[in-house]
Amino acid sequence: GHRTNYILIENKEHDIYYAHWDANIIGRKLFYGPDSLVQYIRPLSVSEKLLDTVWGEGAALVDMDQQKLLFWGDEFLWHTPALVTCFVQMLRETTWKGWQVEWASEGQVTIAKYLGVDTQTVLNTEEEEDDDEGEEVEAKEATTYTVAELANLLDQMLQNHLQNLDYDPTATIRSFIKDHHKKG
């Protein structure tokens, strides 16, 4: 799985939702703007608390009161800060016009802070360090990209999304469960 939290804030109250497969494609879930995202989130399972820093791999918080989107995740964005900056600007200037769009730089901790939740509740100290992977990630984060390379990466994100329109386990399971309920 790619465990994900979605959070909706309305009238100063927040609800936390859970999706099992979305974190690696969460950037692509944001393409369609606030209305589509909220419509997607509402039927998801409600959670009592946020995922912790080990299990959570991405989150999107939609603050309807402040018109603010705070998110992190997506395999294209995880370790590529230059692409994150570009991606955020793309959303602000296209489908999220008028909204504050921000990357949650500390992941679940940033989300918890925004909600006023004690960050200790999301910190998992059992996190294991993988040295080899750590070096790889650091190297990727330090890479500088030309504008053309950033445009290529955004294009790849878009193409990947279009090629996988049928791949949406969360939506698939949702319709399956709906049918199942009807059948009793």
Binding site: Y32, C86, T95, V147, A151, L154, L158
Partner: peptide
């Protein structure tokens, strides 16, 4: 559907503008 096509078009145009240097990045 139509909304999807519009969104994809919008994003594609933005990416093309970025490629052509029409977008000012911070």
């Amino acid at each position: 559907d139509r909304h999807r096509e519009q969104v994809i078009q919008q994003l594609s145009t933005w990416i093309a503008d970025l490629r052509e240097g029409k977008v000012s990045l911070p």
